[in-house]
Design a protein around this nucleic acid. Sequence first.
DNA 1: CGCTTTTGACCAGCGC
DNA 2: GCGCTGGTCAAAAGCG
Length: 177
Amino acid sequence: MTKSEVDQLDDGYRWRKYGQKAVKNSPYPRSYYRCTAASCGVKKRVERSSHDPSVVVTTYEGQHIHPCPTTTRSTLASFMHNNEPSFGFANVSASQYSSQHSFALPHASSTSATMLYNSSTTPLSTTSSFGGFVHQDHAGNHYHQQEAMLRDNGLLQDIILPSNIMSNIQDNKDSFI
DNA sequence: CGCTTTTGACCAGCGC
DNA sequence: GCGCTGGTCAAAAGCG
């Protein structure tokens, strides 16, 4: 369950929508997505909570059998190209970036819901929870970028989960990272 | 042109 | 069997 203004959360993988249905007991439709990677049959369902419209419920089914295509460099690279050269952490670019990205925690077992790591409500007024790396684009230009890192304190507060699951995450968070 | 989204149709499971 | 519901298919449209 992820608090988000937008239905489409970027978890780093590429998804193709294959259906949408109205669901009972909810005014909001449920969307069905499949991972676009060949031979990767991972699916996800995305629906908005009827109790709290600001909450998006994302249910993953299966596990990816391939590396995440976009959480490494490419997504950030494309983002950078849209915002260069004045990328910085105290400006609008940073907040736009944070509002559009979430991070899937690993260790999701088959058919179970995966918790999303969403940074949409976390102000990026500091750089304390980010590391950095250097990106080289096709023209050979170098950009110093800040790569999102999963750190303690980072963004766990934005995950909306039952308390027992939250405590389980806290107990095992080192293994998540 | 290739990929994605939209959307009605179709199908399976379930309760009555 | 019938109706309801959730999940999937696939043709058409949209988009870069």
